[in-house]
Nucleic acid binder design. Structure first.
Lengths: 184, 184
DNA sequence: ACAGCTATACTTACTAGACGGTATAGTTGA
DNA sequence: TCAACTATACCGTCTAGTAAGTATAGCTGT
């Protein structure tokens, strides 16, 4: 019970940190606030994450594994055609809005506190880009599709004139179409 | 001479604030650091910007007027065809990398300190999106092009697997092409 | 034509509070 | 009993903001 308790406390802390950034802004991501929201003492938080840096790293690692799992799950086994990875990437970013929000909260937490902490995200992004360029479709078009998906994140997270729901679903449709149209 | 001195000090402060965010990260954007980099005392800084909020607002206003000017300048008068605004928007974001960096430093400064300060950027973004949707080409495609441009910003600013120079210029070329291909 | 006044553009010195992190004592379940 | 975990009190540092003073240029009424 204790070790299970510990594991759930750990993820509760991570969850609370994400909620704080999302609801109150990254400037409110303080050890005291996270501990309060998670319902543990500051000492308890620091038992699980010995420093703020460790906490943010925890957020990032947690997120990367989730996103990678998600991309894998979204890969359609029936779909062996070119553009397969890109379609899964699109589904992951467009469908699971919680996940893409979490991506941004973690990214923001890193950028606001210590940009060096972005390194793990950078490495995974690099891998995704590699896969996108080798996805069987024209790499220029493939990258444009990826950038459009990333741009949507950005627009939605910062609320910078994001497309309304109708336009948004048309965009997803069109982007998926674009992964099928052109072959190399 | 004195009022000119004052004006140049003001823009020196703004410039220093941007440099700090860009080179040291947003966590180093403190009044003391900005003052030191600008070569004035903290009191001197607070004479021009009575609070940190005012400083960040100054960064944002400065940027918006620059970007709007830039989009206007990039509008080709010979080009009266559909997609004109979008082509200018693309040129502004792809060509002037200083400007797009500044966009991100200001945005980051706002987000990291007080997300409410994003409001002026939101309003201008909304206007840009309106113009993009009414630019004479299919609004779905038009928005995809805008989002791809925004995604490029994002990728380059955070160094998240941005396309290399060659791919980058191919992407610009292709996006410009896309503004001409389809008509409404 | 010059003393007195005002506005601008700063500097220096300070304060209250928030923050990350430490130290330490205690609790709890196996 | 011992490891895993939690709570509280505290510390030094950093930060935004305040307060008060200085220097100087340019008016302005007599």
């Amino acid at each position: 019970m204790n070790s299970k308790e510990s594991h759930s406390t750990r993820s509760l802390i991570l969850k609370s940190a994400n909620r704080l950034v999302l609801e109150e802004g990254v400037s409110k991501l303080t050890l005291d606030n996270v501990a309060r929201l998670a319902g543990v003492s500051k000492g308890g938080l620091l038992y699980h994450f010995p420093s703020k840096k460790a906490l943010i790293l925890g957020m990032i690692e947690n997120l990367i594994s989730k996103f990678n799992d998600n991309v894998k799950v979204n890969i359609d086994d029936q779909d062996n055609k070119s553009g397969q990875f890109l379609r899964s990437y699109l589904k992951s970013t467009f469908t699971d809005s919680n996940l893409s929000k979490e991506m941004n909260t973690s990214l923001l937490a890193a950028v606001a506190n210590n940009p060096a902490l972005l390194e793990p995200i950078r490495q995974h992004y690099y891998q995704w880009q590699q896969q996108i360029e080798k996805d069987g479709i024209d790499p220029i078009l493939a990258t444009i599709i990826r950038l459009a998906a990333d741009g949507l994140w950005y627009a939605e997270f910062f609320d910078l004139a994001p497309p309304n729901n109708q336009l948004r679903s048309h965009i997803l449709e069109r982007l998926l179409q674009m992964t099928k149209k052109e072959t190399m």
